[in-house]
Design a binder for these strands. Sequence first.
DNA 1: ACGAATTATTTTAGACCTAAAATATTTTCT
DNA 2: AGAAAATATTTTAGGTCTAAAATAATTCGT
Lengths: 182, 182
Amino acid sequence: MDMPAAQPLDRESKASERPADHKDELRLWLRLLTCTTLIETEIRSRLREEFKTTLPRFDLMAQLDKSTTGMTVGEVSQRLMVSNGNVTAVVAGLLADGLVDKRPAAQDRRVQVLTLTAQGRRAFRAMAERHEDWVAELMAGLDQSEIVQLFRLLGQTKTSLHEAIGRRQSQAQARAAQGDTA
Amino acid sequence: MDMPAAQPLDRESKASERPADHKDELRLWLRLLTCTTLIETEIRSRLREEFKTTLPRFDLMAQLDKSTTGMTVGEVSQRLMVSNGNVTAVVAGLLADGLVDKRPAAQDRRVQVLTLTAQGRRAFRAMAERHEDWVAELMAGLDQSEIVQLFRLLGQTKTSLHEAIGRRQSQAQARAAQGDTA
DNA sequence: ACGAATTATTTTAGACCTAAAATATTTTCT
DNA sequence: AGAAAATATTTTAGGTCTAAAATAATTCGT
């Protein structure tokens, strides 16, 4: 079998390279995490200093602002990728501050519908404007084409993640079904 | 004044476009956050199921594993980008489980030096191997060139973030010095 | 119709995280 | 040397987060 001739095998790769070496993926993940943490920490800090509020509250209000008719606890928790119980807790704070309204749905009394109050909407809009500027300022070192490219690659990443997570969930379901009938 | 002729102005852009519209940066940030949250949630879940441990503990042990001589509380907190108090708390759990050792430095008794115990090192190595596989599995939808490109663009992002955060911190310092002498 | 399964939310117990104050130690300045 | 400033860590108070159990309401299958 022919091999490509003089290509130096260990130019970049470690001597310890194994059949399945996934160091690059790991380094990518760590860098992704670093970027997210840096941004998150900075935004938390500015929200606290300028608006005396927190990121989870801001995020929750952002979801409600996008919806005119209100959202249920479950919808919000799915959107924010946090637990139901957490939404209940964060909403409790926003209710106390008069920024959010909560009432049972007319048709299904299990469901709680959350909406921004007028005050909440005003407060959110003011914060959102600043927030958008902060993010732009943080990304100022990237030009337009880099932003677009990064956005696209993260789209690919998101797809990859959903596929991998979906695969695992269907495996878990299969195991559970197996257990039921065993 | 001449304008470029027939370029359709509002092909993609919103009618509400303002002098400084930073929607792209915002969308980029939200997508970045989504990817990070998806990965983090999945890894948390697997660490719990397979090893009955948590991500903060794993991350802390990962830092200690990289150092042969041990690290101080401050070094760890800087590396992990968390508060000192948080390191104290997470270490308390690891100490209780016999995975980490803590002792004052000989030269400077303010400093606490953290090291993995033999048991801690063994436990971490086993987890790290699996962890690397999980990350690779999650990223499986990206080919090598996409991984490299993404890594490079996130490097640019990191630089941009450090610059913006650095600028803000020197401004805050200047304000503080101003206040001192005012 | 009515009991069982399902669905939506809240509660609980416990871990994590931060900022700010408190504590302990070292260094610096006179 | 000794007071003051600086440094490293811990403590405290309070918000965030999760998983799992509990509660409440609806739907499904007979």
